[in-house]
Design a protein around this nucleic acid. Structure first.
Lengths: 337, 337
DNA sequence: TAAATCACCGAGAACGTTACCGAAAAAACA
DNA sequence: TGTTTTTTCGGTAACGTTCTCGGTGATTTA
């Protein structure tokens, strides 16, 4: 059985009490400089590492944050994580990452079996809102601070940080309109999600404001992958009148659409305009390059973590809601040229 | 101060001892069915959650695995993580993720300050081998199982799992040769890394086997990003004779090279062949599509975690080394047509 | 010189859980 | 009926750490 050097080992080696060692190691009050020096030296000599379980036990603090993500294999979530870790690391917090794979059941399972005592707080982007948010409410009721980001949960009262989905979608759609497209379709996300709804609304309002027709068959919902984008486009192409532009809920779906269009020998931009959402690096690589709304993923991660840390430090902290603006990036796919 | 219901709360509510509650909760020996039922009911009623700190303290087991990664914002590492989590989740282990950002200093800092007592094992892909591996040796000396993957550390005796870098590189180079390219350059990774060396050797041996010249100025080392790929290509293009094909150490650099070549109006495939390594999804999206060696990222993650779990379970477990084969994926960028 | 202050240290309880051992009650055996 | 076994439970130490409290000497103050 492995066993680390403990505070007791140091104490007995130096013939002093554990209390003194404890104080010396933490450099607090009431300890002579020379004894402190001796303790420190002995500690490195024995390769002492503090036992976080023990510390967590007495303080009811673990310096561990949980992160719940639908997926990690994409640009948005992975840079978001990097943002989170950026502030967590500086504050001395570790991150335990849970990936649900967009599986709502798994999400519930994970949250229900969470070792709440092992976590000082929870950062979450929900997998799906289809069913209830009960499992999150339970966590909050247990006194564990929760911050939602990106895919937030409507009916739960806590801090949330997200990009401005509505205005981003509005701007993207207006951009297409200004570039002469009139029959604009929307390749959307799963229906249950709030941000799917927000982007849909931005799209709709932009059409209405410019007195363009809203054609229900030009709005198709499905998942977030490139394959979903391809399928959505096929569906758009079989039934009724075809659109002359596509606003996709994210870049991956937009690229799926571009690929499908290219297979049909339809010229992107000239025949059909395409715009995405996210500014995934791949949008600059695909040909023609994809116009998009850049999301501040890293910043969202940072802000979420900062907010969570605040929640943890203050006992009573009023939930905040922050919305970060996106930015229109014009490339080739949305221009007739 | 937040406080969860404990085993004591259940005990006093039921007027029984904590030992009995403990046994009932864990469904072990020596507990009557009816009292067990009562305990279970009370537990859900009080929303009891076990305190992992306490359990970790007595068992010296946390069911926490540490993962040390150079970065997470790319396809390879993020799917690798998914593979790890796939087996960890089933085995009831949580994952604490540390991302170094390819910063060797930060790696040392993280490892040195690791709460070893909070981790049952460590999965690592090193950030750089430039300096020493001493910090990892310390961890192992403390009795914490470590498994290396992808970017392994040579001088440390422990389990390692990686793809077959040498043969992959060999195969990629031979593929270019067979397609008629003769002046093949290599855009390599940072020099310190073992797998950089392995891929370089595969490349060199393929050249030698086919009696092609090895031109030192056609081998350029740098980092792993797309930008590095672009820079490397520029460097290749300024000095002396220009190559007619490029084998890149990974897809991102290959794509950088492709982009730079396109800016020069050089036709990919026809004028200059390009092949990468990884099979990042973007390699199918870029135009022309990038030939590459597919790496079994997910599988590597799974195998690493399985191996680590074995190490943790058995007290004495002989280090294993597993090498997974890659697979040549032929697309457009490596064909003259 | 007596009293008050100060610097430093130790004892012991506490955090939530498990493990070991012993005890009481119930059941089985003789 | 007495004895042994089985079933079920409780007491207690232990895990590594922090924290509160009190207690030495030594030093300063009056």
């Amino acid at each position: 059985m492995r066993r680390f050097a403990t505070i007791k080992d140091i104490a007995s080696a130096l013939n002093i009490s554990v209390s003194t060692v404890s104080r010396a190691l933490r450099d607090t009050y009431d300890v002579n400089a020379s004894t402190r020096q001796a303790v420190l030296q002995k500690a490195t000599e024995l390769n002492y590492r503090p036992n976080f379980n023990a510390i967590g036990l007495v303080h009811n603090r673990t310096h561990n944050l949980g992160i719940l993500l639908p997926e990690i294999t994409n640009y948005y979530f992975s840079t978001l994580f990097t943002g989170i870790q950026d502030v967590a690391y500086k504050a001395g917090f570790n991150l335990t990452l849970f990936v649900t794979g967009n599986d709502a059941e798994r999400e519930v399972d994970i949250v229900r079996n969470l070792s709440l005592s092992g976590l000082d707080g929870l950062l979450v982007s929900v997998s799906s809102q289809a069913d209830s948010d009960q499992h999150f409410q339970e966590v909050i009721d247990n006194g564990v601070p929760v911050v939602f980001f990106d895919r937030v949960s409507e009916n739960i009262h806590t801090s949330k940080v997200m990009q401005d989905d509505y205005n981003g979608a509005f701007e993207a759609t207006v951009h297409l309109i200004k570039n002469g497209y009139r029959k604009i379709a929307h390749i959307a996300g799963p229906e249950g999600l709030t941000f799917t709804q927000a982007r849909l609304n931005g799209y709709l309002d932009a059409l209405r404001k410019h007195k363009l027709p809203v054609e229900p068959s030009w709005i198709v919902h499905s998942g977030f992958t490139q394959q979903h984008g391809e399928q959505d486009l096929e569906q758009l192409w079989v039934c009724g009148e075809r659109p002359d532009a596509i606003f996709a809920v994210n870049d991956r779906k937009a690229i799926g659409a571009i690929l499908a269009l290219k297979r049909k020998n339809i010229r992107i931009g000239k025949d059909v305009g395409v715009i995405g959402f996210t500014n995934d690096p791949v949008s600059a690589i695909v040909s023609p390059a994809l116009s998009t709304i850049a999301e501040p993923a890293f910043e969202i991660g940072k802000r979420s973590c900062e907010l969570l840390l605040k929640h943890i430090q203050k006992k009573r902290f009023e939930p905040e809601q922050v919305t970060l603006p996106g930015k229109l990036i014009v490339r080739e796919s949305s221009q007739r040229l």
